[in-house]
Nucleic acid binder design. Structure first.
Lengths: 196, 196
DNA sequence: TTTATTTTCGAACGCTTAGTCGAAAACCTA
DNA sequence: TAGGTTTTCGACTAAGCGTTCGAAAATAAA
């Protein structure tokens, strides 16, 4: 069908635009990401963007949703694998680290951008459901792990909060960001989450 | 002297403006913090602000510098107290937590805002020296602590990075931010930084 | 009270940027 | 090739915001 090819092309162009948005975001930061620049980065005129997206917010929203969908699809596999809570938890963090390393700009956007946006449309976007799902899965793993004495005896929410911050720091902080390998993460987790 | 009183009043008004800036920042976020709103929050007309500060950047810069100065003055005391590296390190984190709890908006600004600003003037501001000093003191404490086997045998920079993220998470993340007490922090650190 | 100085601020300026419009170009169909 | 449809984009509009201007109000000095 011609229809199909048309739709596919439209989708491809939308992806190009999202890609451009990501590029600009990476180079200029969230505030510096203007529609004009995104258009140029994607190889379109400014007005053309509005043929594919109805607003700047919609672009960011689409980026967030798509990113979280991919992230979740990937992590779900890990979550459903077999192993005890501790193993699964570490496996998930490792997988997140792998993904982040494979496409840093995307995940910086996914993890940082939501804090910066104040718009309702974005704060209550569809992507949020995936974030919540991930949070709950990790929380349950910790709850189980604590119950089975595989983690220190602590309030799971606090542990997750702390590990979230820790992981965030591990993966995104520091001057030379390439210096932290998966092995280091695993080793670090092993030391910090030691049985007691 | 009349001169003196004048200078003091000028200083007081500058403080009012900084206070207003903080209020608006807290309510509207960094991007939403306009000169108009800051002026209104501080009880001045917009143009009056420029009688005290020459630009918006200068206002943020002054806020950062003053905040870090106060923070550092406070922490220096703790750093110079007696105790082994581990004790000193924990004491410093506890003190930071106390300070943050005492004036959350200020420290959110101090710790979050620098990431958002791209302006040279702010990125290379005087405040940065204090941040560096704090970083180095904490790093040395960890290096000493590792040497003396009071911390797990790990790369101090990584430990600090991780703890930075962790602490960040502990203090700033989560829905109900008041729920984390100093005691919990201490307990958490004790468990995580256990000797091995 | 008069004059000089400091302080305040509404209004205007200039620039940036999200979003629109209308027409041209590219493409498809017959 | 002719007519219709899809896609592109330069130019324009409108709004927001940092900054400046000029004059008025408040305060101090004489």
């Amino acid at each position: 069908m011609v229809q199909d090819r048309k739709a596919a092309e439209r989708e491809t162009r939308k992806q190009l635009i999202l890609q451009g948005a990501l590029t600009v975001f990476k180079e200029k930061g969230l505030e510096g990401a203007t529609i004009d620049e995104i258009a140029r980065a994607a190889g379109f005129g400014k007005a053309s963007l509005y043929y594919y997206f109805s607003s700047k917010e919609e672009i960011f929203n689409a980026l967030l949703l798509q990113g979280w969908q991919i992230l979740w699809r990937d992590l779900e596999e890990v979550a459903l694998a077999s192993g005890n809570p501790r193993q699964l938890f570490i496996a998930m963090l490792k997988r997140i680290a792998e993904l982040v390393n494979a496409d840093r700009p995307l995940y910086e956007f996914l993890f940082f951008a939501p804090r910066s946006f104040r718009a309702e449309e974005i704060q209550n976007g569809e992507w949020k459901a995936y974030q919540t799902r991930l949070y709950n899965v990790l929380l349950e793993l910790i709850e189980q792990g604590v119950k089975e004495k595989q983690f220190p005896q602590m309030e799971p929410k606090i542990v997750l909060q702390a590990l979230g911050g820790l992981f965030h720091g591990l993966v995104f902080w520091g001057a030379d960001r390439t210096s932290i390998t998966e092995d280091e993460i695993a080793e670090m987790l092993d030391k910090i989450l030691q049985r007691n």
